[in-house]
Amino acid sequence: MSTKSIDLTLEIWRQKDSKSKGDFEKYSLENISTGMSFLEMLDVLNENLTGRGLDPVAFDHDCREGICGMCGAVINGIAHGPEPETTLCQLHMRHFNDGDILVIEPFRSRAFPIHKDLITDRSALDRIIQAGGYVSVNTGGTPDGNAIPIPSATAESAMDAAACIGCGACVASCPNGAAMLFTGAKISQLSLLPQGQPERKERAMAMVTTMDKEGFGNCTNERECEAVCPKRVSIANIARMNREFVKAALLG
């Protein structure tokens, strides 16, 4: 792995708090190692700003391994940046060139109000799960893990859907600010597995209704969500959710 240094110009959305009006600020950064991750590049910027007595850029991040779903921003118009199947923390600077101008914007959706700079409030996604993204079992008294055989392929499909990290890039990239991929993934996972069957209809109805209530847009099948999803969650899950919803709505 060979690393080199590049110079960048950053245009970053700065917004003091949820009530303030934000705007873009321009920063130039020199000598960025291409071995850095995108967030490490932002760390360098922040150290730089701090050293100059300026307010560092607030951004969400935690595991920096691409699994917690905490980080995320829109880089030059693409959520999580240009590399497919990559969260921002796993995006490395070797994918950029010397002299690039990077416009960094927060995830935008009516359902994701901005707290500060690049930090948004994604709790609407939690409320969708709270509406029904679970199997109603209490702790204890569950049957043996092998009591119900599940075909390997079914478990794999459920896992494909369950891989969602809840980062919200699907919402951010959707021209309609829809959360169909997120919701569809959870509905899919549980409708595929035998454990999810008893509450299948109620779950689909409740989660879809909550999704609408939270102010997310509708799906017009633009496929942007799938294209930016760091975990390659497929829109087949949206189709499955539609089936589940129609079945639940028509057949009750």
Binding site: T142, A155, A158, L193, Q195
Partner: peptide, 10 residues
């Protein structure tokens, strides 16, 4: 975990 719908490998 199985009862909760955790998709363990099979």
């Amino acid at each position: 975990c199985v009862a909760q719908g955790v998709p363990f490998a099979r």
